[in-house]
Computed example of a mutant assay.
Amino acid sequence: MDFISTLWSRVTLVSAPLTVPMLVGALVAGILLVLLPGAWHTVRHAVTVVHEGGHALVAVVTGRSLTGIRLHSDTSGLTVSRGPKTGPGMVLTLLAGYTAPALAALGASWMLSRGYSAGLLWALLLVLALMLLQIRNFFGLWVILVGAALVVGVTFLAPATWQLVFGHVVTVVLALGALRASLELQTSRRRSRNGQSDADQLARLTHVPGLAWVFVFVLVALVCAIADAWMLVPEGLLTQP
Rank of each mutant, 00 (worst) to 15 (best):
V91Y: 10
V49D: 01
A225L: 06
P209H: 11
H51Q: 13
A100C: 00
L33T: 10
L145V: 08
A199D: 04
G153L: 08
A212H: 09
D2N: 14
R114Q: 12
S197M: 01
T79G: 08
A56L: 12
V61M: 11
G89R: 02
V223E: 02
S76A: 14
D74C: 12
G167A: 01
R204A: 10
N194Y: 12
L71S: 12
T206I: 03
W213E: 07
V151N: 03
V170P: 03
N137A: 04
G83V: 08
V28C: 14
L150T: 10
I4Q: 07
A199C: 07
A175E: 10
P209S: 13
V11T: 13
H55W: 09
I144E: 01
A225T: 11
M90Q: 12
A203H: 05
T206S: 05
F138D: 03
L92W: 05
L7Q: 10
L94K: 06
I69H: 00
A158V: 08
P159C: 01
L179Y: 07
F156E: 10
W213F: 15
G68F: 15
E52T: 08
A225H: 07
A129Y: 07
C224H: 00
N194S: 13
T6D: 15
F215S: 11
V43A: 00
D200V: 08
L132W: 13
V47M: 09
V169P: 04
T79N: 12
S65C: 10
C224G: 00
R70W: 04
L133P: 05
F3N: 15
L145Y: 01
L35V: 08
S65R: 15
V60K: 10
V91Q: 11
E235A: 12
G167V: 02
L106V: 00
I135D: 02
H41D: 06
F156A: 11
S15L: 05
M231R: 13
S113E: 11
S73N: 03
L106I: 00
L179Q: 09
A212C: 09
